Computed example of a mutant assay.
Amino acid sequence: MASHSENHYFVPHGSIYPALISVGLLSMASGFVFNVTGSDTRLDGSFKNPALSYLATPGKYMMYFGLAVILTMMFKWLSAVVTESLTGQYKKWEDKSFRIGMIVFICSEVAFFAAFFGALFYMRVLSVPDLASYAPDITPYKDFLSAWPSQGPGGTVLGETYKPDPAFHPMSWSGLPLINTLLLLSSGATITWAHWGLIKNNRKQLIIGLFLTIALGITFLCCQAAEYHHAYTEMGLTLKSGAYGATFFMLTGFHGFHVTIGTLMLIVIWLRSIKGHFTPEHHFGFEGVAWYWHFVDVVWLGLYIFVYML
């Protein structure tokens, strides 16, 4: 018969961490809104709302303050969770709830990227061709260009003439994007190899596998930064490059953000592995990060196919 300690569900004491993180989120979000509102400019550099320009500076500091609060509270909160795990507070029911929670979280991330991919498909397949198919005598969209990649409306729209940027070029599937694909696919293999090492209680294999995965993730981010610099300075591809530029940076940028978060999570797990925190029987902290990293790999394959290749 199972003992009481194996059947109970651990409930921690009340904590102030959620309230403080809420304050940090509110401060960071409000600061972002103030900063965008106060620094919103036209193409010629002039302010669209000069009366609100005073919001930019305090908004920037609110963002920094909110981010600092969130990071500090995350460190403190997660440290408490690690302590609870190491002291044997988590049994099978806690492990099960953690797994369900991680699955729900990844499902929410799937929905997040599905919305972005949906926006790409809607603009590429429906909105851009439809605007170009309207008869000029019944629509203000005259000579609208339906070509994809679309860097803007082209022709005359609502009485204003748009001229395509001659320096604009869409991002190729070869070069850095192909290298990044190989990097992420390799990182999926290295973290799986590390997991095998943990299951076999081979600490050396676990630590080396995690280190290689972290190195591949950081290399991916460096390559993406170089890709963005090349796009802005030599290809005329920016956030203002019409529907293509907006969707390209929206999808790849948010994926890069997820790679950054995943790399930070891997570093934490790597340091914990060096300290011997995981065992072959109990290592959901490792598994949760591995699930997240594989999710990031799969999303990138979708990006590579639908954004770069097609």
Rank of each mutant, 00 (worst) to 15 (best):
L71W: 00
I106D: 01
S85K: 07
L67M: 15
E109L: 15
T139E: 07
L43D: 15
L120T: 03
G101C: 07
G66N: 07
Y122A: 10
F105K: 01
E109C: 13
F116C: 01
A56W: 03
G45N: 11
W77F: 14
T139V: 02
D44N: 09
I138N: 13
A132W: 12
L120D: 06
I138K: 10
V82F: 12
S53H: 10
V125H: 04
F112D: 06
D44H: 00
L126P: 02
M63P: 01
P140H: 01
S46L: 02
D137M: 08
F113D: 03
S108W: 06
T72C: 05
Y122S: 06
Q89M: 06
F47V: 03
G88Q: 03
E94P: 14
T87F: 01
S46K: 06
K92G: 02
L78T: 04
K96S: 10
M73A: 07
L67G: 12
R124S: 09
Q89A: 14
I106N: 04
A135W: 01
S79I: 03
A114E: 13
G101Q: 09
E94C: 09
G59H: 01
E84V: 00
T83R: 07
P140E: 13
S97H: 13
V82K: 15
E109S: 12
N49C: 00
L43T: 15
F105C: 00
D95C: 10
F98M: 13
Y122N: 07
F117A: 00
S85W: 08
L131N: 09
L126C: 06
I106T: 03
G88N: 03
P136F: 02
P140D: 13
I70K: 03
Y90N: 08
K91W: 08
V69P: 02
D95E: 15
Y61M: 06
S46R: 06
S79C: 05
F116H: 10
F98T: 06
M102V: 10
M102H: 07
L86K: 10
M102W: 10
S97V: 13
L126R: 11
M62D: 09
M74Y: 00
F65R: 00
G45I: 04
A51Q: 11
A115Q: 09
I138P: 08
I138Q: 12
P58A: 08
T57L: 14
L131M: 12
I103N: 08
V110Q: 05
A114K: 08
V82Q: 14
Y134Q: 15
D44P: 01
A111I: 01
L43C: 11
T72A: 11
